[in-house]
Structure formats: C-alpha cells, structure tokens
C-alpha cells in the first residue's frame, strides 16, 4: 500500500520523472490528514458519548487562533501541491525541439501512425498487432529507446485519447485540430496504449501497444515497413493537384496572390486586424479549411474553403508538406 508499485505500473518515461514520488507523497499527506481528522473524531466519540460521566463544562463555540491555524496550514500545503504539480506538468508536456515526430490519427477503433521523416505508416489495433507479432514485427506504435518523441495527434471522427499508463502520458485527439504529447522511453519493452476518451461500441477494444525497441531494431523496423505499400500520402502531390500552387509560392519569393509558404513555419504572421498568430499545425490547418478566419495583412480574402474537399489524410499530408518548406527544417536535415 505504501509502495509506489502497488498503485502505479512501472514508469519508463524520463520526462515524467518524479511524478510517482509526488503521487506517493500525496498518498502520505492524505493518510496523515485522514488520521488528523478521524483520530480525534473517534477518540471523542468514545470519550464524550452520553453514557460517560465526564467534564463537559464550557465547550468553546469558536477559537480564532485555532481557526486561523487550520486555515493557514492547509492553504500552505495546497499551494505547495499546486506548484509541485505545475512544474512537473510543464516538464511533461513541452516536447524538446529535437524530438522525433510521429503523427497519430485516432479513428473508430484503431490508430494510424505516420512517421513523416521515414515515410512510413503503420496501423495499430488488436487484430493488426496480432498479425504483426506473427510476422516478427513489433506491434503497435514502435519507437526507439532513449529518444525524445513528439506525438502530433488528431482524430478522423470523434474524440479519442492517447493514453500510455507506463509513460504517465495522456492526450485527447480531436477532429480538425492537432494536439501534442511527448515522452522519452527509457526501457525496451511492450506497453499498453489505451483509448481513454469514450468513443462508442469498441472503445474498450481500441487497445494497442507501444513497442519500445533498440535503435538497431527500430532501423530494421523502418526498412521492413518501407517495403509495405501502406504509405503516408505525399503532401507535394496534394499541393499540386488541389490548386494550391496557383496562388502560393513554395520557394523564397515575394508577391503572388496568396502569402508565400516558404519559411512560413514558426513565423509570426500579422493579420489584417493587427493581431498576430504563430504559424503552427493548427493555424495552417485552419487556414486551409476555414481561410476567411485569419487573413494575413496585405492579402485579400479570396481563398476558397477547402473544408470537406480534402480527406483527413490529405489535410494532414498538406500541413506536413507546408511545415517542411521552412528553411530551418531543411537545414536540420
């Protein structure tokens, strides 16, 4: 009961380091608080029960000093708990800049993981995992050990949630929006990946694994998967066939009907109403499906609405393609 393993599965995410100790400290704080209240309560229940002949004179109806003490002490403890939780949280949710990126798409009732750098795609569900294990391929989401990973998640239908208990990581994935989760696994093995947001009939069957493998095994996995026909859609193709290229330049240039996309990623854009926005996944996606929402200063609101015109897959590919037009990104490769 007072051992962390009784409450929690083994933790293998270096970014969540310390949360288990924090949890156990709170268990202890809870037990002590319980004793501080229930102990005197039970003691008085016996001592002052009606049948006892005991001094009951002058019971206090209030006591300012005592009341201040029992307000100030809990307040101090609670503020401490807040700061401990908040600092741990910010460490857990901000991905390092050099993290390896994986796209996760939740859908009733399986996951699709795209590895944009490696150009591979895997589907993960109970059935698909069984098949892969049979063929000697690690199941589920496959990640290399000791490598920071950034999961950019979205959903193709309703809300799902990416939950890996062993990582202490949980993040909802939403339709038409990107959310980010991050972790760095410290130990090879296979761990449960649950859907934690209710999504219908097979919610409890939307279970897969995270396979944490050595760098060599990961390279082998990548090369094996590269032979598969199932690949992420090519963003450049979507860009050229959907009419984007007609207005948006993809190389460093000025002018053009729409803003140049070269170097857009991470840039702060000033809009017609003088507000600014940082170009990230969600901004780029919004500018495709709802272009009238945020018009860049100096341009006219004339782009057609692509909502419903592109599939979820095509949209994701397009966002990735535009992201990779950024020079820093090219430099890094």
């Amino acid at each position: 009961m007072f051992d962390a393993r009784f409450w929690l599965p083994e933790s293998i995410n270096s970014m969540a380091e310390g949360t288990d100790q924090f949890f156990m400290v709170l268990i202890w704080v809870s037990v002590i608080s319980l004793l501080v209240v229930l102990g005197p309560m039970i003691w008085m229940m016996f001592r002052y029960r009606a049948s006892q002949d005991i001094d009951r004179s002058a019971p206090p109806s209030h006591h300012l000093g005592l009341e201040i003490v029992w307000t100030v002490i809990p307040t101090a403890i609670l503020i401490g708990v807040f700061f401990w939780g908040a600092t741990g949280y910010t460490k857990m949710v901000v991905p390092p800049t050099d993290a390896m990126e994986i796209r996760a798409t939740g859908q009733k009732w399986f996951w699709t993981f795209d590895y944009p750098e490696e150009g591979i795609r895997v589907r993960a569900s109970l059935e698909a995992d069984e098949e892969r294990v049979k063929n000697g391929i690690p199941p589920g989401l496959v990640v290399p050990v000791d490598t920071p990973i950034k999961i950019v998640g979205s959903s193709a239908d309703v809300i799902h949630s990416f939950y890996v208990p062993a990582f202490r990581v949980k993040k909802d994935v939403l339709p038409n929006r990107y959310t980010v989760a991050t972790f760095q696994a410290t130990k090879e093995g296979t761990y449960d990946l649950f859907c934690a947001e209710y999504c219908g009939t097979k919610h409890s069957k939307m279970i897969t694994k995270v396979s944490v493998v050595s760098q060599e095994a990961f390279a082998e996995f990548i090369s094996k998967q590269s032979e598969e026909s199932d690949k992420p859609i090519d963003g450049a193709t979507v860009f050229n066939t959907s009419g984007c290229a007609g207005c948006h330049a993809v190389v460093a240039s000025s002018g053009g009907i729409g803003p140049t996309l070269h170097g857009l990623w991470g840039k702060t854009e000033t809009l017609v109403d003088e507000t600014t926005v940082v170009a990230d996944e969600n901004y780029i996606r919004e500018s495709i499906v709802n272009p009238m929402e945020k018009i860049v200063r100096g341009y006219s609101p004339m782009m057609p609405n692509y909502s419903g015109q592109l599939s979820e897959d095509e949209l994701n590919a397009l966002v990735l393609y535009i992201r990779d037009l950024s020079p820093e990104k090219e430099g890094a490769e």
Partner: peptide, 27 residues
C-alpha cells in the same frame, strides 16, 4: 460521511495536481 467524504476530498487534491491528473484523468 466524515470518513468517506474525506477520502473523496483528499483524492480530489491529488487529481487537482496537474502532473498527476494527466495520468489519472478518465481512469
């Protein structure tokens, strides 16, 4: 009530702590 509500309230403090809620939410 006192015993049960205290347990409920104290676990609420655990859930209010951000880094722990990430793991415990929706479980």
């Amino acid at each position: 009530f006192m015993a049960l509500f205290m347990i409920g309230g104290l676990t609420g403090v655990t859930l209010g702590a951000l880094s722990l809620d990430v793991h415990l939410h929706d479980t």
